[in-house]
């Protein structure tokens, strides 16, 4: 089936501001959004940039705003979203490039919020 994929793109070396781009992707119902992004990167635009690692819902690398909710791209399936899918970077953090956000503030919070108690 054909999926209409809209991605909020931003290249800091070229763009003044983020802009939506549309891609048509051939997809199976059980494909996950990560599969679609990988297909776009491989077949349509190598500059599409996103983090991913475990690809099965454990590491959190591919957290993104998908159809209006923050989710893991490797877990959410096409059949759960429908033929119109929009992907934007995770809300609340500065955007580095395309779907990659700056994690520094998040990582600085870890010591403050998860302090290991002294024995």
């Amino acid at each position: 089936m054909q999926v209409n994929l809209r991605i909020l793109r931003f290249d800091p070396e070229r763009d003044a501001a983020p802009h939506w781009e549309s891609y048509r992707v051939e997809a199976e119902p059980m494909d996950r959004v990560l599969n679609l992004l990988t297909a776009v990167k491989a077949e349509q635009d190598d500059t599409l940039t996103f983090r991913r690692s475990c690809a099965h819902g454990i590491c959190g690398s591919d957290a993104m705003l998908i159809n209006g909710r923050n989710r893991l791209a490797c877990k959410i399936r096409v059949d759960q979203l429908g033929k119109k899918i929009s992907v934007a970077p995770l809300t609340g953090l500065p955007v580095v490039k395309d779907l990659v956000v700056d994690m520094d503030t998040f990582l600085l919070e870890v010591p403050r919020r998860h302090a290991v108690p002294d024995r």
Partner: peptide, 11 residues
Amino acid sequence: VRDTGRVFNTD
């Protein structure tokens, strides 16, 4: 490599 940028170049 088709992405020739310097910022977060995963390609």
